[in-house]
Design a protein around this nucleic acid. Structure first.
Lengths: 197, 197
DNA sequence: TCAGTTTGAGAACGTACGTTCTCTATCTCT
DNA sequence: AGAGATAGAGAACGTACGTTCTCAAACTGA
């Protein structure tokens, strides 16, 4: 067996490849980036890429799934650091604001991919739904500790902020959503916070 | 001058073409539909299409602009029919719910196009921003008659509902957003409505 | 050292894109 | 009726796509 590719090499390649894929596909859209450009960016032979993922679509799904784990993990870590339940809900929007302010932020990768390909790429559409389900559950859990009746609205505020920030490149959408969430929690929850501002 | 194409013919062609473009591009995405498929769907010679719009991108922009006029006009008409300001705000979400329930609903056409093409199609990105600005102004105006401080949150609820309904194909997102808006208005406005439900 | 295997680089394949061009047929005006 | 211009249909053009294939080079085990 010559030049056998080790398991660690595979893992390293996957990382390199998904890093390049995430950057390129998020920045320019999925169909606008060809496999050859991806190969050049990843510095990997096309053959290895196709051994790791049999099709471009499979690669995109893997990229979205890894991004989902990272994205929600980062959010969870941020929220876990906040003790007070009400503050923890508001911290969601601080985290979103920091995301929006990242250079190259261009909205929700899953919404973008879903909107671009739609029903003609069912696996990608399912990855988008799965991500949204998981994020929804995260928010419901988060808000449930304060006022379960506000959970759906807070979730929709977060989704709305992501779209608006994405289209306008305006990180301040997070603050507006945060103010909305604050008002919602003040409305039906215990009133230990001012009603607005 | 033989077979001269009249101005009315031009207008008719534009309508036919943009109808086909709106259907195909919204359903399958912008890059997934070729000019030849569009030609076949519109039943127009390619030459005429390129006389009406010099490039595919210009055609897409024209399609988005016409859709924007129609979309916001329809919303305005629906809202104008509601006398009570508070009910008028809630009527926004009824209108959204009806839109979500339309067969083939697949989210916001502008967000989809923006997410697909991004900064590599500046004219389309600008059409998306322009639509969002106009919709935002419409909502601010609408909510301002009841409680201006709730306007931004109501707007974000609407945007959130559109995304969620688009990804999950779930028209009920409109009702959840409506409940959120109701709570927001009850919170800071005059309290002539129950606080939730 | 020598089979034998697998690698990497990129050519090749078949298809499809957006746009332009060709060419014939049709129409208008005199 | 005849001249002239323009229309329509679709072939042509250059490019780029996702995926597969070729083939010389490099490595392994004996």
């Amino acid at each position: 067996m010559p030049a056998a590719i080790t398991e660690e090499q595979h893992a390293r390649d996957r990382r390199t490849l998904l890093d390049a894929a995430e950057d390129l596909f998020y920045r320019r859209g999925v169909q606008a980036v060809g496999m050859d450009e991806l190969r050049a960016a990843a510095g990997l032979p096309l053959k290895r890429i196709y051994r790791l993922y049999p099709t471009k679509e499979a690669l995109i799904v893997a990229m979205l799934e890894r991004r989902d784990r990272r994205w929600r993990g980062s959010l969870a870590a941020h929220l876990d650091a906040v003790a007070d339940p009400r503050e923890r809900v508001l911290a969601l929007f601080d985290w979103l604001g920091a995301w929006f302010a990242e250079p190259g932020f261009r909205g929700c990768a899953w919404v973008n991919a879903h909107g671009e390909l739609g029903p003609s790429a069912p696996a990608i559409a399912e990855a988008a739904r799965s991500h949204k389900r998981a994020f929804h559950a995260q928010v419901v859990d988060l808000v449930g500790a304060v006022d379960a009746s506000a959970a759906e609205a807070v979730y929709l505020l977060a989704e709305g902020a992501i779209v608006v920030a994405g289209v306008h490149g305006d990180p301040a959408a997070a603050e507006r959503a945060r103010a909305g969430a604050r008002a919602l929690l003040a409305a039906s929850g215990g009133a230990d916070a001012p009603p607005a501002g």
